[in-house]
Structure formats: structure tokens, C-alpha cells
Design a protein around this nucleic acid. Structure first.
Length: 290
DNA sequence: CGTTACCTGAAA
DNA sequence: TTTCAGGTAACG
């Protein structure tokens, strides 16, 4: 469910509310043990109890809850991934249980973090250094290190559809199915355009479009098509502003052509056949140099 | 590289 | 009843 803008909305909401708080409990509800990916709950609980939250970061779609001054100060980091339907809420401890509650982390001020997740795909990892969790990821899509040049380094020589590369977290971290389709629309690129065939202007446009759609998503507090909610359980608004995502058979805002849907790289994709034509590109595919 | 599995509920 | 889902890891 949540992509970079949704995770960032939760991060920004939580940061001022939980920074400085100490953890007073940790409970995974029966049937949700997979959340810890085989690590015994007692092992996590032992390290969490009494730890103080010193900050909350993010890399791509991963939330990084930093404990005891972060890893330079010897504290571990709780790495949370919400996958498809996970949600991290901040509630008063006496508030009624949220639906699909899977874990709770009581804090020392009478509140608690609550992890809810319909499909139980979400994960918690407690690591000594957050780099352990993010080592395989490309640069965060909002990091200045993710430059147009860095983007092209990941794309050049690849024949895979550009849509698949946008979803590949090793190239750039944080883009998911909604924002991939939206960025391709803004950049006037067909989702199946071969990645390595993008001309300089096309990749500059796509890089800029990624920045715009993510900033827009954050401004609108994320897209709630189905399950996504912020840390208070409230829906975002970005679903009202999408240009193509899940708008199959509707007219394009820009040209009136009928928006189409197809499967690219195993994921539903939505695009405007007139604004995002698939031109001939085979001659312009650059080969990767050794 | 594309396909399948992981889970559950909502919508068609 | 069937299909589909904001994601990723493990397949072949």
C-alpha cells in the first residue's frame, strides 16, 4: 500500500510525538508472529524495553525508528516495512483496539504505537545499524544524491520496461505502483518504453516528474485508495488528484483520449495512449560499457 | 528476466 | 464465486 509519500506522512506525524519517549512494552498479537520474520518476540522485547526513541528516519518505504541516540551511540534501530496493507498508528493506550491490530508498543506517556495490517506482509527488524536494512536499496527518491545522472546510471543498457525500473528499489527507493504510473504520465513516457532507450530530455523529464509526483503526494498526505491511513488512522487525499492511476476508461485530463490499463512487469499499469505513445526506439538503446 | 507465493478482505 | 490489491522475496 504505502509508497514514499505515505511512509513520509507517517514519519512526519510521528516524529514530534514519539521522539524522546521511552518504550515500556512490546507485544505481537497471536497469529501475527511472522511480522518478526522468525526472531523470537522475547528477544526483541528484551532490547526494546526501556529504550528511548531518539528519532525517526526513512529510506524509501522503510521507516527507521532510532533508539538511544541512534547507532553511533550504540542504540539499535527498529526497521518497519508496511508492505501492502500495514499501518503504524499512534493512539492513547486506552483507545479501543484498531481493526487488524497485529502489534503494539506502549510508551511512557500513556500512548502507544500500534501496527495494523490486514494481509500480514509487514515486517519489523531490529538492527544495530540501519545500513543493514537498507544496503540493497538505491538512493531514496527524495535524496539530492538521486540526481538525473545517478538515475541514468541505473537505467543505461537496460532493456526492461521503464515502469519496471521505477519499481525496482535497487535503482531508486520509494516509488511504487501509483507514483510510477503518475510520473510516467507527467513525463509523457509509455510504461513499456525500454529503459536504456530514453533520450537525455526524456530522462531529465522523468527525473523531474518523479520529484513532482512525490512532493505532491506528500503535500496531500498520501493516497488512500483502500487501506492506507496516517498515524491517526485518517485517510490521505492524493487519490483525488491522480491523473491516470486506476482511471481506466476515463478521459485523459490533458487530451481526452481514453486511459488504458495493461500489465507491465506483472503490475497493473495505467496510461494515456495519446500523451504516452510507444515510439520506435530500438536503434537508440545504448549498450552497457564494461 | 517473468511468474509465483505470501495473506486477507472488498468489490465485481 | 472470482478477481484484485500502494510490495517484495524466492523461484525457474
Amino acid at each position: 500500500m504505502p509508497e514514499l509519500p505515505e511512509v513520509e506522512t507517517i514519519r512526519r506525524d510521528l516524529e514530534p510525538r514519539i521522539t524522546g519517549r521511552a518504550i515500556t512494552g512490546f507485544d505481537v498479537l497471536p497469529g501475527a508472529e511472522r511480522l518478526l520474520r522468525g526472531v523470537p518476540q522475547r528477544a526483541i522485547r528484551k532490547r526494546l524495553l526501556g529504550a528511548q526513541i531518539s528519532g525517526i528516519g526513512r529510506h524509501g518505504k522503510y521507516l527507521l525508528i532510532e533508539l538511544n541516540g541512534h547507532h553511533d551511540a550504540g542504540g539499535p534501530t527498529l526497521v518497519v516495512h508496511l508492505r501492502m496493507t500495514g499501518s503504524l498508528r499512534h493512539r492513547r493506550a486506552d483507545a479501543p483496539d484498531d481493526r487488524f491490530l497485529r502489534a503494539r508498543i506502549p510508551l511512557d506517556d500513556g500512548t502507544e504505537l500500534r501496527f495494523t495490517d490486514v494481509r500480514k506482509f509487514g515486517t519489523f527488524d531490529l538492527v544495530d545499524d540501519p545500513a543493514e536494512a537498507t544496503a540493497k536499496l538505491g538512493p531514496d527518491a527524495t535524496d539530492p544524491a538521486f540526481s538525473a545522472d545517478a538515475f541514468w546510471t541505473g537505467l543505461r543498457g537496460r532493456r526492461a520496461p521503464i515502469k519496471s525500473m521505477l519499481l525496482d528499489q535497487r535503482i531508486v527507493a520509494g516509488i511504487g505502483n501509483i507514483y510510477a504510473d503518475e510520473a510516467l504520465f507527467l513525463a509523457h513516457l509509455h510504461p513499456e518504453a525500454p529503459s536504456g532507450s530514453l533520450r537525455p530530455k526524456e530522462r531529465a523529464d522523468l527525473h523531474a516528474a518523479i520529484g513532482r509526483v512525490l512532493a505532491d503526494g506528500i503535500k496531500n498526505r498520501g493516497a488512500s485508495f483502500r487501506d492506507y491511513t496516517d498515524a491517526d488512522g485518517a485517510a490521505g487525499n492524493q487519490q483525488y488528484f491522480v491523473r491516470v492511476f486506476r482511471r481506466t476508461d476515463e478521459p485523459c485530463d490533458d487530451c481526452g483520449a481514453t486511459i488504458r490499463r495493461s500489465v507491465v512487469g506483472g503490475r497493473a499499469s495505467h496510461w494515456c495512449p495519446r500523451c504516452q505513445p510507444l515510439r520506435q526506439r530500438s536503434r537508440t538503446v545504448t549498450s552497457k560499457r564494461p
